[in-house]
Amino acid sequence: MLKLIKLEMRKFRIMSYIRAAMIANVVILGLICFISLNTEAKDEMLFSSYDMVFSIIDTLVRGTYIVFASVLISRLVIDEFRERSITVLFMYPIPRKKLIAAKLLVVVLFTLVADLAANLFVGFGFAVLNLFTSVIPESLTWSVAAKSLLTVVMSALATSFLSLIPLYFGMRKHSGAATIVSSLIVVALVCQNVDGFTLYSVIAVPIGLALLGAVVAYLSIRNIEHVDC
């Protein structure tokens, strides 16, 4: 399986996606810096504590990487079906289930690692900024950092699986556009914030959606050995 994952990454030149993810992280950091230094945001107490800032960063990162994952699904899975290159892949002496599972694992692992790295990068970047600008008066303690890190890890795990939900819509007509549009709907669902209340903070929501993502992945490979290409 490791070899298949490596081949997938080689085939789709994963480095270009890593570069794109780095750029996205810099943009998110820039956005956070811009908002935090904006006086209106200060007035609305959006950046009153590290907890709050890390939560905002996590939400932005989550939204970004759910869409990012849908782009990966579109390239790695949907395009293979649409451009018929899947027929080449399915003529190799490897179970089809393994081939598709390798692709989905690339998406899940990429999203997980990218989500974590982005949270750490932007969080750290903001903490450095705060040293000079004192947007947040309190200092960053180990306990706040550890608690935020735990939340980020749990959130990233859920995000990496729920980001597979668009696969279901994309596979129906092998449409990349449907995949990306459905990912935006998922983002709207898990990244909204109404007066400080987010659906994602209800623990059942991320767990439920992550399970749904896993089910979608399972359904996509369950009968794959028996279908025509």
Binding site: R84, S85, V88, M91, Y92, P93, I94, P95, E225, H226
Partner: peptide, 18 residues
């Protein structure tokens, strides 16, 4: 449906080269 190993002994072009 699961005769994968037999495919290792074949070379193919079906429909058009992809």
């Amino acid at each position: 449906d699961t005769s994968f190993q037999l495919l290792a002994r074949m070379g193919t072009i079906i429909e058009r080269p992809i």
